[in-house]
Design a protein around this nucleic acid. Sequence first.
DNA 1: ATCGATGCAAACGATTTGCAAACGT
DNA 2: ACGTTTGCAAATCGTTTGCATCGAT
Lengths: 178, 178
Amino acid sequence: MATASSLTPKNAGPGRGGPRGDPKGHWRSYLARKGLKTTQQREAIVDAFLRISGHVGLEDLLSSARRKYPRVGLATVYRTVKLLEEAGIAAARHFGPGQTLYEVSEGRAHHDHLICDACGFIIEFESNEIEKLQDAAAKRHGFNVLRHRHELFGLCEKSRGIPGGVCPGEAAGRRVRS
Amino acid sequence: MATASSLTPKNAGPGRGGPRGDPKGHWRSYLARKGLKTTQQREAIVDAFLRISGHVGLEDLLSSARRKYPRVGLATVYRTVKLLEEAGIAAARHFGPGQTLYEVSEGRAHHDHLICDACGFIIEFESNEIEKLQDAAAKRHGFNVLRHRHELFGLCEKSRGIPGGVCPGEAAGRRVRS
DNA sequence: ATCGATGCAAACGATTTGCAAACGT
DNA sequence: ACGTTTGCAAATCGTTTGCATCGAT
């Protein structure tokens, strides 16, 4: 998995079956409501997407989906992910030009990102205090906040050369930037 | 201009001539140091860029520059802005796919963004308290923070239909998202 | 005179779309 | 059967680059 602990663990409740812990159900009801169809390639893509709790690129998603359904094309992945976004299940993150990653948004609270410049690993965290402050700041400008993006770029212990320091990314063994 | 007030005005000091208040000087010395040349189209582009204290798209920058130098091409704008980035004068912000804006990075502190979903207007703000909290959060994960990106998406007063509410973007008359 | 800079147009990578065939309802 | 979805390839968008010419030092 590409991501790690939360500062303030919130969803300590049951992870499946609950009202917001069932993205697959949301997906199905979204399709039904819209009169759309459940195809095998869509299922393959959605399953691959949901299996990954971190961030995915569309190429990764394509190969994942192809393990179940070798016939899927890249265009279908784009189309399906767009549906997932409209359904509120997926959220796009634009980390740079041509570097768009997607993540599961359903049932998850606002969360922020810590990104290691050296190894590219991404940690998620939450902070209610920060949320409060940013809402206050927005209010001062007459805004109400619907979504937000908060990314901190820096170096993990390991990358800073701290003896015994470990990069959480290496501990998890994933997503090391070239 | 596309951006507005700061929550905590910091650079109240002299805006020109100081060690970090002279981006044009930085630019010239950067060119000299690298053995690059000062051309009229570069000057036109850099001047247009510095005249705008907020965010610019490259198309906007092109037309601005063309008012001084009708012969400039889009490729030159790209090349010049890349130089500005290398010189540390410009910073790119990727707000979405195909929506890259540039801003002056020289002499400016970390700042966050408030973005109206309805009209696309972007306000900047700063909050030392948020900075403190995010540094603390990073520290808890063994990170030190070098840069960060903090964007709040929501609706301005006008867009929420508040009587008498004004969208700062419309007040400034710029950058209304389609 | 030399070497970098320019403009144009072609190249490029990521994303979208037109279309006939295939599939789910 | 009907209308949606698919895969492919072509189209499109933003961005980059090759190349012959132009301009600054």
